[in-house]
């Protein structure tokens, strides 16, 4: 039994199954982060001041408590990884599997770098006793960035698979492998996209 349109697009919709599937999944993710953002808005407009009191100290700006340079670095890392991801896919289209390995490897490493920076950031917060339970600002910060971090890890698992064991498919079913890389890319760009909104709304505003 074969499922139709796993590789070639269906004529009337113009897409193959996995592409539609991943976009539907991303639509659901939009609503997930949308729900969290609405919670953020809801709590923030209800708060008399933001970030407000933490350990008896009053903060006027998020940037006074969060590490903006590190977050900027992470933004650059993530944007860069989006570019390498799309270049990995383009390399496959050009039949350059060696380049694909290179760019996909870079994408994976960028994800790792993002997490390492994040770990330093969290670590210094914990050192100062800035825990999620201390205030709603910190709770939002840890929940949103933490959930985003989980999405980064999820993306790295997929990318790692396509770099390692999953890459065997390039030999047997190249067209389907290109599709898989494209679809994984769509997810990875979405993770980048969420961060693009998280960065200013949490660190800067």
């Amino acid at each position: 039994m074969d499922i139709p349109y796993t590789i070639t697009p269906r004529a009337d919709t113009g897409v193959y199954n996995a592409k539609l599937g991943v976009w539907l999944f991303l639509a659901s993710e939009v609503m997930l982060f949308g729900g969290l953002f609405s919670a953020y808005i809801f709590l923030r407009i209800g708060a008399p001041e933001w970030p407000g009191m933490i350990h008896g100290e009053s903060f006027a700006r998020a940037s006074d408590i969060l590490n903006v340079p590190l977050a900027t670095l992470n933004t650059m890392i993530l944007i860069g990884s989006s570019v390498t991801m799309v270049l990995a896919w383009a390399s496959l289209l050009l039949n350059r599997f060696d380049r694909y390995r290179l760019y996909m490897g870079l994408t994976f490493l960028a994800g790792l770098a993002f997490l390492v920076v994040k770990a330093f950031e969290y670590g210094s917060k914990f050192e100062h006793g800035y825990l999620p339970a201390e205030s709603n600002f910190l709770a939002i910060y840890f929940t949103l960035t933490g959930l985003h971090g989980l999405h980064v890890i999820g993306g790295m698992v997929v990318n790692g698979y396509l770099l390692g064991p999953g890459a065997k498919m390039w030999k047997t079913k190249p067209a389907q492998f290109i599709n898989r890389v494209e679809v994984a890319g769509l997810y990875w760009h979405f993770v980048d996209l969420v961060w693009i909104f998280l960065f200013p709304t949490i660190y800067l505003l």
Partner: peptide, 22 residues
């Protein structure tokens, strides 16, 4: 990001439909 990396500049109607609704 959406337009170029995710190729939304030249995507199919069914994808646009899903995204507009969302």
């Amino acid at each position: 990001v959406a337009a170029y990396f995710m190729h939304l500049v030249s995507e199919r109607k069914v994808i646009y439909g899903v995204l507009i609704m969302t």
